[in-house]
């Protein structure tokens, strides 16, 4: 600390300031801890209003039972968990390869001018509200899916996966691109000097060197997809049954909370069960973010 000796007379404005300083620092530190406080508070509220559901249903029934019939007090969430996983998996299958390929293109191949047009476009995609994406999915994609696969309805897991893929892509692209750009130029140049083509240098040296960052990008993309609410609520058809194919309606955990919370009375098992689903979601995204953070930490340590 660069504290100067306090020469001010006691009681003067200057000494008041000196006295106030430690107080201010305490206040600032308290605000610094805000993020921790809110994570803990969110967790606490999910536990407080979620755990009581296990008075009416066992943990294993809640997680692995097949019947989600809130009206007859059946709170078994396997169809919802599988619904979330199915939609997310479909989104990942589309968004990961396409997103990483676009990131490699933007970072390594695209001419500066092209990149300056494409990057804002990706940012626009990131900025479109999920309810607008859901609306587009409903009126544009769903009829197309219905026609293309000759289905009774276009509101399917696949429709949700496609829309979610586009919502996860900006995350995957921008974080992967940052990771690729951060690889020291010398790595690629070394490969080129040994006679490799640019593609060999990109695929064999640069991209592998950015692996941790790309893993983090994929994890965060998955987190975004699994937590997305409005889009899946609007386009997946919301049938709480165990999904057997991507071409049938499903209902995700997020959509269930959004659709049913408005109608339940506080303190009922249904109310508690929706908080418990929130708790499961929170723990899932917490784990996903933790993995992503560890991966990013590794890239920082190495450089």
């Amino acid at each position: 600390m660069t504290q100067t000796p306090d020469t001010a007379k006691p009681g003067s404005l200057k000494s008041m300031r000196r006295l106030a300083e430690p107080l201010v620092e305490k206040l600032v530190a308290l605000n610094g801890a805000l993020a921790i406080i809110f994570v803990v508070l969110i967790m606490a509220f999910l536990l407080r209003d979620g755990l009581p559901v296990f008075r009416s249903v066992s943990v294993s029934k809640f997680l692995f039972g097949r019947d989600w019939y809130p009206l007859s007090d059946q709170f078994q969430t396997l169809p919802l968990i599988l619904g979330s996983l199915a939609v997310t998996l479909g989104a990942v299958v589309i968004a990961v390869p396409v997103g990483i390929a676009a990131a490699v293109y933007l970072a390594e191949i695209a001419p500066v001018r092209v990149r300056e047009i494409l990057k804002p476009t990706v940012e626009v995609l990131a900025g479109i509200p999920s309810v607008v994406i859901g609306f587009i999915g409903m009126v544009v994609l769903a009829p197309w899916v219905k026609g293309a696969f000759d289905l009774p309805t276009g509101m399917t897991a696949l429709t949700g996966s496609i829309m979610l893929a586009f919502m996860a892509m900006p995350t995957i692209i921008s974080i992967s691109e940052d990771a690729i750009v951060a690889v020291p130029r010398d790595y690629g140049s070394g490969a080129l000097a040994l006679g490799a083509t640019s593609w060999q240098s990109i695929a064999g040296v640069t991209v592998p060197a950015a692996k941790s960052g790309i893993i983090a990008a994929v994890m965060l993309g998955i987190g975004r997809a699994i937590g997305e609410t409005m889009t899946v609520l609007m386009v997946t058809g919301n049938a709480a049954v165990i999904p057997h194919s991507l071409l049938q309606p499903v209902r995700t955990m997020t959509a269930t909370i959004a659709a049913e919370m408005g109608e339940v009375a506080q303190g009922t098992p249904h109310y508690f069960s929706l908080f418990a689903i929130g708790l499961v979601l929170f723990l899932m995204t917490f784990a996903i973010n933790l993995i992503a953070d560890l991966a990013l930490q590794r890239t920082r340590v190495r450089r």
Partner: peptide, 30 residues
């Protein structure tokens, strides 16, 4: 402590928006 704050910020950013809704309902509304 600082590491924990940063980890919390990352996690807060990843909490699904509907979970914020539940939290707001539990804390502020109720």
């Amino acid at each position: 402590f600082t590491r924990l704050i940063r980890l919390s910020i990352v996690n807060l950013a990843g909490v699904p928006s509907v979970v914020y809704g539940l939290f707001g309902l539990g804390l502020f509304v109720m």
